[in-house]
Nucleic acid binder design. Structure first.
Lengths: 232, 232
DNA sequence: TTCACCGCTTGACAAATATCAAGCGTCGAA
DNA sequence: TTCGACGCTTGATATTTGTCAAGCGGTGAA
């Protein structure tokens, strides 16, 4: 892997605490690749040969069953994905495809496991990362099971607003069909859900969202840090 | 904590690889408590003071929001729960209550974190445990988003059948109202879902289930190891 | 033994969500 | 510029799921 990328990877919580020696050992077998949009990087059920790090672009994690499919998460720079499968040396549970043009680091899984076995700091960093991932999925599970689709959309908008800086107007960060899938509904219903939020002061123009009455929307959405705060 | 319980705790994957010294240090601050049924052990949002180990009985993990509530998992002996919150020193995301009379070990979270910081083997064991938990939730997420309630019930029955030994007849391992909540539906709908599986050879008598036509049910349920096999 | 409670079931109905078909608007290639 | 593809929207309709109310049957306490 070209050394120019070392610093960005090294800066990740996952890699920052390990010894130089082990980090370079990991990087020795790694390589960087550029992918065009809509390329399937991995398929669920395949053996987990590589730990992936997204340097730029974005990646959709999705899954299929019996002709249906659903988006489970979106990975943005700079972070890793399929860490759990790599560590357990188990098949991927999700497929991954690039959303846009993306630069991705591929680190051989067996190298990750080998270093994991000898570097306690690396093991501890992995714990922190996995605990974070686990808690995120639990939150998402609660979102799905405790809320209607309208409530999920309202809370998603509030989260996205905060991520975008907190202003009244902001842009959706991916296309509506994918948003619908992430929120567990059909594109048609997402369209209707946006209309359903109109009485609470949400206006939509393409990917541009404006929240005209923050208090009103929050009163409806009832955001809760134990579901919506993905930082804890 | 009484020493008599040491062997059962020590036998857990989580604790089996650590040094005696560290294990005893953990146990020194731990204590065992017996709880009657329906006792709320922890509440979501509370700080994670203890890592819990279920020695006997069973515990329901659930969550509430806006007047609704849902069961997320059931913990059976011998295993731990709320490991992620303990490690991250973050608030619990789920509440826990005993289903039946249960004996539970409480290990102070700060002790767990302290030993985690110095014992690489313990850290590695935690990684394995967390990766397992993470993958289980992802499977459950896929179950929820990709299947109808009828399909979820059918696959649940097949999983439970396997757990019970694989015979055509077996018992549900908890009351139907909780099963309904775990599967993401109302008790009324669970009742109807059982009727909906009658054409596929499923008969119900109280908590006793009989699968009269294994092939037929499996053809309908389409079980998939990437969703239904909780051992990988 | 009797009775109140509780979990489960059932039916009727309402609400939420999905499906199907059509149309609209934008964007990029010919 | 024109055309076609594609994502989004809309309306009509079907399916799924939830809600409410009532009744059934087992269990445990008086």
């Amino acid at each position: 892997m070209p050394e120019q990328h070392y610093p960005e990877v090294r800066a990740l919580g996952l890699f920052s605490g390990m010894t130089d020696e082990n980090f370079f050992a990991l990087m020795r077998g790694a390589y960087v690749q550029n992918f065009p949009p809509q390329i399937e990087l991995i398929g669920e059920g395949e053996p987990s040969d590589f730990l992936h790090v997204v340097l730029s672009g974005s990646v959709d994690l999705f899954s299929q069953w019996n002709g249906r499919d659903t988006s489970l998460a979106t990975v943005r720079p700079i972070s890793t994905f399929i860490l759990a499968a790599t560590i357990k040396n188990a098949p991927y549970l999700m497929s991954a495809r690039t959303i846009e043009k993306s630069r991705i680091v591929l680190i051989p899984s067996q190298d990750v496991r080998a270093i994991f076995d000898v570097d306690g700091n690396f093991a501890r960093a992995i714990v922190t990362e996995l605990a974070q991932c686990y808690r995120s999925v639990i939150k998402s599970q609660k979102d799905l099971k405790l809320r209607t689709s309208l409530e999920r959309l309202a809370n998603y908008l509030l989260r996205q607003q905060k991520r975008a800086g907190g202003g009244a107007a902001f842009d959706l960060d991916f296309e509506k069909r994918r948003l619908a899938s992430v929120l567990g509904m059909t594109p048609e219903n997402l369209s209707r859900a946006f209309k359903g939020l109109l009485p609470y002061g949400v206006s939509v123009e393409g990917t541009r969202i404006t929240i005209n009455d923050q208090t009103d929307l929050e009163r409806f959405a009832k955001p809760n840090p134990l579901i919506d705060d993905f930082s804890t």
